[in-house]
Design a protein around this nucleic acid. Structure first.
Lengths: 274, 274
DNA sequence: AGAAGGACCAGTGGTCCGTA
DNA sequence: AGAAGGACCAGTGGTCCGTA
């Protein structure tokens, strides 16, 4: 196993490299294509895969069956180092995220938030490709980033994309889409205060709940109205927070109108102020 | 077990009665409400449940947990005959469908096609109720007739509704929605020729494929554009037929333009005549 | 034979928790 | 400790095939 000095450098992205980025892109006619130049050129590709101790065969369920065609090569999934049976290679985890300002590149073995958001854009591109393929084959066409899309991403070499991670930060990406200024301000503030990623992530909920409030508490409608956000499932926790806040607002409004008890059906269509 | 003489009468519907039709209707504020008076008044309710030999406990997984509230009573699922543990009661199957003309009531132990289509309307009403409940609770809201909706229908007493049946005839209902005249004509023709339900069902595919052709072969778009049809998944076989026909049409168009071989990228945007 | 539907199954959405 | 992600699980879409 190689263990380069490169390892120590800033490397937004990967411990495992995003191999054959081009291959997957032209797999379905190069649709989309917008806005990925920076990361692909500057960051992701300059790093070789590194390997550490082993633990499992790891390359077990390769899933070569489903759609091994469409112009992408099929065995490139594990990039050109190990060869053979896949034994002995150990994938490294992605570097953890840190709170970075907009435009800031993370140093050390860390990844920044621009890179995080870029992963969502990549998933969108993978979805577009899956959709193109599905339409071409006359199969049912996903409208969201589904398991199938994650599988496709992995098969296309984007092994650094995985479902738990993407679902974990969806609402952070949502804020970035819906109110970039607020998102940027939050990042700067949390970076300045030296907060970790977890607390920044937590803090992203509140402004989203406020946005939902301004849209009649319909968080699904908020997501669906945004072209890049509509392909993501609304996270359960965000949905629950919106529901709770709506109930609070309704109760507060009711308390204002009546005194508490016998108040005939106030349909409270007004905002409580969000 | 009771075995009435009523048994021999015409009874669109049921062997098992659609109990508590009212209960489920006002469960979520009586939305929809259009177009079900005929069947509910005339047919479905006039029949008592009959029971035959036993085979299984049958009332095993009653699913009382999920949402046993919202104004519908919870134990009415098995209607007021058996009582106790549910042992000893044996549900009868629905009577088989026969090809009937529009407006015609099936005689004997048969069900007609108006009744079949009415079941789709009922499912839509159940979906609307499930949606209302979900929105009220701040849970994710189904846009299609899902397993959850079938479960809700069953719980509401509509034990004659089940997934395999509804999925089996979806495309027949689609034709009824999209071109009622053509659907009616087909029914009359197949009735006159004494065809059975299976061959009528098969014959429903072709006119749908033609409709898809007129809409650029996008059968999903055709379904989604129709308010009552959009809640149903496009059946796999219909999707496949449309895809096959599209390929045929493209090939035919290509053959017309070129002689067969070297014809530079004809993008064939024209219709072949559908 | 023709038809209704219980019940199964592969792959889904969702996220926990063993891992580093 | 904070965080990444393999892997699990309940419930889904889909429909077969034992049943009547």
């Amino acid at each position: 196993g190689t263990h380069h000095a490169l390892d120590a450098l800033s490397q937004e992205g990967l411990s495992e490299e995003p191999v054959q980025q081009q291959d997957q892109t032209d797999a379905a006619g190069n649709n989309g294509g917008g806005g990925s130049g920076y990361w692909e050129a500057g960051q992701a590709k300059m790093k070789k895969q590194q390997q550490r101790r082993r633990k499992k065969p790891m390359v077990a369920s390769v899933e070569t069956d489903d759609d091994g065609n469409e112009g992408e090569d099929d065995d490139g999934m594990d990039n050109g180092n190990g060869g053979g049976g896949g034994m002995g290679t150990e994938r490294q985890r992605e570097h953890p995220f840190i709170v970075t300002e907009p435009g800031e590149v993370a140093r050390g073995k860390k990844n920044g938030l621009d890179y995080l958001f870029h992963l969502y854009e990549q998933c969108r591109e993978f979805l577009l490709q899956v959709q193109t393929i599905a339409k071409d084959r006359g199969e049912k066409c996903p409208t969201k980033v589904t398991n199938q899309v994650f599988r496709y991403a992995k098969k296309s070499g984007a092994s650094y994309i995985n479902k738990p991670k993407m679902r974990h930060y969806v609402h952070c990406y949502a804020l970035h889409c819906l109110d970039e200024d607020a998102s940027n301000a939050l990042r700067r503030s949390f970076k300045e205060r030296g907060e970790n990623v977890g607390s920044w992530r937590q803090a992203c909920y509140k402004p989203l709940v406020n946005i939902a409030c301004r849209h009649g508490w319909d968080i699904d409608a908020v997501f669906n109205a945004h072209p890049r956000l509509s392909i993501w499932y609304v996270p359960t926790k965000l949905r629950q927070l919106c529901h709770l806040e709506r109930n609070n607002a309704v109760a507060a409004a009711a308390a204002l109108v009546g005194g508490g008890i016998s108040c005939t059906g106030s349909s409270t269509s007004g905002r409580g102020g969000c």
